[in-house]
Write a protein that binds this DNA or RNA. Sequence first.
RNA 1: GGGGGUGUAGCGAAGUUGGUUAUCGCGCCGGCCUGUCAAGCCGGAGAUCGCGGGUUCGAUCCCCGUCACUCCCGCCA
Length: 606
Amino acid sequence: MEQMKRTHACGALRASDAGQTVTLNGWVHRTRDHGGVAFFNLRDHSGITQVVVDQDAPSELQEVAGGLHMEYCVAVEGTVRKRPDAMVNSDMATGEIELAATRIDVLSTCEPLPFMIDERSDARDDLRFKYRYLDLRTAAMQRKIRLRSEVMQAVREYLTGQNFVEVETPTMIKSTPEGARDFLVPSRLHPGTFYAMPQSPQLYKQILMVSGFDRYFQLAHCFRDEDARGDRQLEHTQIDLEMSFVSKDDVFEVVEGMMGNVFRRALGVELPATFERLPYDEAMNRFGSDKPDLRFDLELQDFVPFVEGSGFGVFEGVVSSGGTVKVLVVPGQADYSRKQITELEDVAKTYGAKGLAWTKVRAADGDANAEETGDASGGLTLDGGIGKFFAPRADEIAAALGAGDGDLLLFVADGWKVATTALGAVRSRLGRDLELAEPGTFRFAWIVDFPLFEYNEDEGRWEAAHHMFTMPQEQYIETMEDDPGAVKGDLYDLVCNGYELASGSIRIHDPALQSRIFRIVGFDEEEAQRRFGFLLEAFKYGPPPHGGIAPGLDRLVMIMAGEDSIREVIAFPKTANGLSPMDDSPSPVDPKQLEELGLRLAPKKE
RNA sequence: GGGGGUGUAGCGAAGUUGGUUAUCGCGCCGGCCUGUCAAGCCGGAGAUCGCGGGUUCGAUCCCCGUCACUCCCGCCA
């Protein structure tokens, strides 16, 4: 029997097609058998059409229809028919018509499903991943994976239009462990040696600049053997790009144009032509994060000016030992309960804060506390928590912070990094709890002027905050050995809605400068040669000044899809634990495979 | 590596201050039904309450361990 090929997609037919004889191919979405007349919905990725088998249809046809079950794959031939007015389903795009079947071929049958192919289905992730092919049949997943495809095409369209060349780099490379753990691939031909899967094509794309491909890009798979998160997988995809003879402004311009094209084409959303720039220090001081969600205000403020002489020993102690006190004014939330504040305090403590101090701004009139707190101005007072220490200056403080009656004040006192980070985490939590960010909006920003080095307390040495090939900013170069912590790098992040979307830098192309960086992070020449010798060798042959960036494709699509996990926009993701329930990987291998590779498993640790 | 939440029928959930037939919706099986569209009505099957151990006369419930999913810290140049 010849297969009935489709003439239309399941979401395509409209009232204007009435009278046509058509064939649809798809999956049985639901069946409704009335004994006489029978209906079923036929679905493909484009939509759903109701098929009707009339009461007076041939008994053979009725029999086939009666035997249909969910997710049978079928071909239906029939006549498009306008529905009677009362039967029109305005919730369906095809709701004005139905297909009166004249022939139904069952192309394949389907066993009872582990979960329903339905927007309402909310199966656990491991089950969805085990049966990912079924999960992907849902309209929601179809939408997201197709969005991803659209984004990739928009990226290629824009970058190739800007004279970028797409170059593939190897998936098996030399292990250059510096940041994350490498995934290793044992070599059979050279037992005892290993390839690594790239954490990113970083060194290769820099070498491509030496090669004269002055604008390179690649949709690159990157692998990092670290614990996963909702926005992190063991393997992910970067829109990796690199350019020669550029400053960071040139890189920004390309990415702004690319994002504009992506959002325009894939979502029909118009982004600003340029994104605002926020120095790292300012981002930390105002938002307590180097990837702030700028869709809402709720900014951190400096409380140090009010600490001296307050008599509140905790704050005074922190300030006198060089720390800082940050405050968050939460408008209108003075009715927050102790329990809610304790929950926020737990958030702050997670990030190293010793506590979360609080008080509430109240109108002072009629307040029994007003006299004993010495506030006779009749304006505002600070009520509860640490309020009594600062109530005498309540009006002054409120004015300086822009706070008013009914506001909640939250404080963290600690070293600068902890105080800003911890209160920033509280800000993020409040943003979620109070739903301050409008869904469906996108706020991009460049974070610039990052420190080039960070001090590693555990190992007692400086290390590269980004990577070792990042150019220090001009004004720090001469004296950078004196105070590495003060050096700002020519590196930048692109953030959107509280996520780090991209990270990049202008690279060092001067071997002498590169050697100084190696020395600061404690790399001797031999170590540098062993790890990066091939790059340093390449840089002996006329390397151009260059820089680049690598936006994360998964996070980008996640944000565009309104999801909060990249698993939702990856066709075949791993679980948070790094497992793949569908193919059951990772898995043990045949001892013979190990033998060929010259590997022997260590006994399991007790 | 550490902390929080979750795990009850194929799926999603309820439940038990520790008590003998573990509940509901969807799905599945059988029957009825001429217009439904999350069809409806009647009947039925289906659960070692994640797994292992402990406490107890008795554990799905309490305790310990373990596995899985998930969120967070660490980690992620």
